[in-house]
């Protein structure tokens, strides 16, 4: 009987059409292209700038990328949990000023005669507190991340000034001596910290169920909810993580500059750009820890290479700007559509 049944009321809505592999190929090209660009820039500097390839110089690049790198890693967490839409999705504008505040806390703590332990604890607490404020306002009060973290940014900037009176607070401690030193000789400890933090976050984000779920929360919130994930907690955790990264970066910054410094807010946009640039280094065109690390190092290499070649460092911002535009133009064409 079934064969004679012909009276459909409606037509089928869709017939499966296998998607072309072209997009996949193009995406691979972009990724390969950006890696190639990385290698090409590297090779150009190696050929043109004597001393660029020396182990000491390369180690230096890693060390000098440490502060911005750790900051951008924190930003990466928020971008992962919030999704790629920068305005409605995840962004933490408070990272840079949070760093400034934490540096002030650490430096003044040491200045007040606290030991490293107490000062570190206070610094971490300050960073986490800012992260917690962001988490509460974004997740539970429903304020747009851009605005909530903007307000937090202002508060951080003010509190930093209150602590430092807009001056450089010199600081020294055994920990700072270690951090600003080289161990083994020729390898800046700051660089090792950057790699360590990146490794730790890479493990959490890319090798644990929690990391995978964080990506789900950012990638398709409804799907994450349907899978029974506590979406709010994941988003909140990303802001806490970002706050803690700012605290870590602040200690590195104090080590690098032998004290707290003013004007940390200038690092914000660099951190945003670093995290977003990293997207091209991932197969899925999403923010990843290795991607962000690579992009931080890439910018570090640019600055370093320009210095060695006596090219004005004033070109660096412009090159970053052009890069971000290229990256965005390329990725927006290739990002897979929502299912």
């Amino acid at each position: 009987m079934p064969d004679t049944v012909q009276s459909h009321i409606a037509l089928p809505v869709d017939v499966a059409v296998p998607r072309s592999r072209a997009a996949d190929t193009a995406r691979t090209l972009v990724r390969a292209g950006s890696l190639l660009a990385f290698v090409a820039v590297f090779a150009a500097f190696a050929a043109a700038a004597p001393g660029f390839l020396s182990a000491g110089n390369l180690a230096n690049v890693v060390g000098q990328s440490a502060v911005i790198g750790v900051l951008a890693l924190g930003m990466t967490l928020v971008v992962v949990a919030g999704g790629n839409d920068v305005v409605r999705g995840g962004i933490d504008l408070s990272v840079a000023n949070n760093l400034g505040l934490c540096a002030a806390v650490y430096a003044t703590g040491l200045g007040a005669g606290w030991g490293d332990g107490a000062a570190l604890a206070a610094t971490a607490l300050a960073g986490l507190l800012v992260g917690a404020v962001n988490a509460v306002s974004v997740v539970w009060l429903g304020i747009l991340p851009l605005l909530a973290t903007l307000a937090a940014m202002n508060v951080c900037a003010g509190l930093e000034l209150v602590l430092t009176h807009n001056t450089v607070v010199a600081a020294s401690s055994p920990l700072l001596d270690v951090l600003s030193g080289e161990y083994p000789a020729g390898v800046p400890v700051l660089g090792e910290v950057l790699l360590g933090v990146a490794a730790l976050l890479a493990v959490v984000l890319h090798l644990t169920p929690a990391g995978l779920r964080l990506y789900a929360v950012g990638g398709h919130r409804e799907a994450a909810r349907a899978a029974g994930l506590p979406v709010a907690s994941y988003v909140a955790a990303s802001y806490l993580g970002s706050g803690l990264c700012a605290a870590v970066a602040s200690v590195l910054s104090v080590a690098l500059l032998s004290g707290s410094t003013t004007g940390s807010g200038d690092m914000l946009l660099a951190a945003v750009v670093t995290a977003l640039l990293g997207v091209v280094f991932s197969r899925r065109l999403v923010a990843t820890i290795p991607g962000t690390l690579l992009s931080a190092l890439f910018i570090g290499i640019l600055i370093n290479g320009f210095q060695l070649l006596n090219i004005s460092s004033y070109w660096v911002n412009g090159v970053q700007g052009v890069l971000i535009l290229l990256v965005v133009a390329a990725t927006s064409m290739l990002r897979p559509n929502a299912g």
Binding site: P209, L212, R213, Y215, A216, G219, H220, E222, A223, A224, A226, A227, G228, L229, R284, L285, V286, P336, N337, A338, G339
Partner: peptide, 18 residues
């Protein structure tokens, strides 16, 4: 379809019960 577009098939299947 409630699926994360940037996930692999395997990740989509096991999300929440990895």
């Amino acid at each position: 379809r409630l699926l994360v577009p940037t996930f692999t098939v395997a990740e989509s299947l096991f999300l929440g019960a990895e």
